[in-house]
Design a protein around this nucleic acid. Structure first.
Lengths: 139, 139
DNA sequence: CTAAACTGTATCAAAAGAGGTTACAAAAAG
DNA sequence: CTTTTTGTAACCTCTTTTGATACAGTTTAG
């Protein structure tokens, strides 16, 4: 259960919001579709809000709706809105600095990590939430 | 400590092996440079062996060396040799199948996952172990 | 043939992270 | 004021990764 599924759930949540248009959706409802706890959804929505992808309102008749059109929400934005880690982690303990390989490994891996991350971001940038909805609808 | 650093360590290990040429390197030595336990290294080497990237020999004077030239080892091979999971995980619990969004979400996410994985593989395919060594050496 | 030096694994413990749950403050609406 | 709902904190549990110990099996040297 320790694999980060936040991105997957975020896509799911945003799709539901998109389908609801301007109507505010309650975390309880979303949780039902995702099959999880409302708090898990609210935690996620909190991240999406920080990234200006959704807008929530508290209080009775409260709920959440998209902050912009599905066509203006790129999956790269969604990915970056979440506190997901990197594609691969660096060493947990620092390598031996007396070893020429160990000494220079961290810097290399870090730049490789950045490059891969950029590649992934470019890929996700190609898709918007509207594309997702189209795919879902045609299924 | 639960972030998968196997890819990072694999690059480190392979670099050491490359620098040692035909000489067999002991897991104890590698563990010293990586700053971890020899068993962790042997576990990793076991995966790399299954992928035909390294060759180990048991017994006294045993150890491990590369199975092919650094220029013939692509980082994509290294990545695929390891039991790393996907870039992002799917839902841990199945979404509500009565919801039109929930019902079609898994299939969509799965294909997106595959596409991202392919992109990542193409990127890693651009680099060989020799490229890594060059970068390390010029640092 | 025996001792020493390795690898290959099994097994267990420890640490960290993710997700689920409960609880409750704060806000909005009626 | 009561109800409804978000926003968060706190806590527990499950899973995964890493670290560590132990030991069987293999090879070399003497």
């Amino acid at each position: 259960m320790a694999a980060n599924s936040q991105f997957a759930i975020a896509i799911h949540v945003l799709t539901i919001l998109a389908k609801s248009g301007d109507e505010r959706v309650k975390s309880d409802y979303i949780a039902g579709s995702v099959n999880t706890n409302p708090v898990v959804i609210r935690r996620l929505l909190s991240n999406l809000q920080d990234a200006n992808l959704v807008v929530s309102q508290v209080g009775a008749t409260g709920g959440t709706s998209l902050a912009k059109h599905p066509k203006d929400i790129r999956l790269s934005e969604v990915y970056n809105a979440l506190p997901c880690g990197e594609i691969f982690a660096l060493h947990s303990k620092e390598p031996d600095q007396n070893c020429p390989v160990g000494r220079n490994m961290a810097a290399f891996l870090c730049s490789l990590q950045k490059e891969i991350d950029k590649t992934m971001e470019e890929k996700l940038n190609q898709y918007t939430l509207r594309d997702v909805i189209e795919k879902i609808d045609e299924a």
